[in-house]
Amino acid sequence: MTPYIVLSTVLFVIGAVTVLVRRGAIVVFMGIELMLNAANLAFVTFARQHGDLSGQVIAFFVMVVAAAEVVVGLAIIVALFRARRTVSVDDENLLRH
């Protein structure tokens, strides 16, 4: 089971680094999705490790929550783009000044 957990870790770290490095809000959002997927992989792996289907059920709920999150997040990105004509996270600095 360890290879699956290692893969899950690697994908999670890639997602986290994406969130921290990239400037475009959409790619940052994709990094969040990748982190959620990595967590799902860990859930499914441990479901098999322990012979308990609860892990798969929780992964299913994570999927649904991620879908809802994507809907709202992309709506925010579209609204931001309409207001500021940019999706770069560096340019959204209205609260700073």
Partner: peptide, 17 residues
């Protein structure tokens, strides 16, 4: 997911994600 005995989640992954 299919290899991990979770075919339902595999289908949901393809369809949803």
């Amino acid at each position: 997911y299919v290899a991990l005995d979770a075919p339902f989640l595999a289908m949901a992954q393809v369809v949803v994600y």
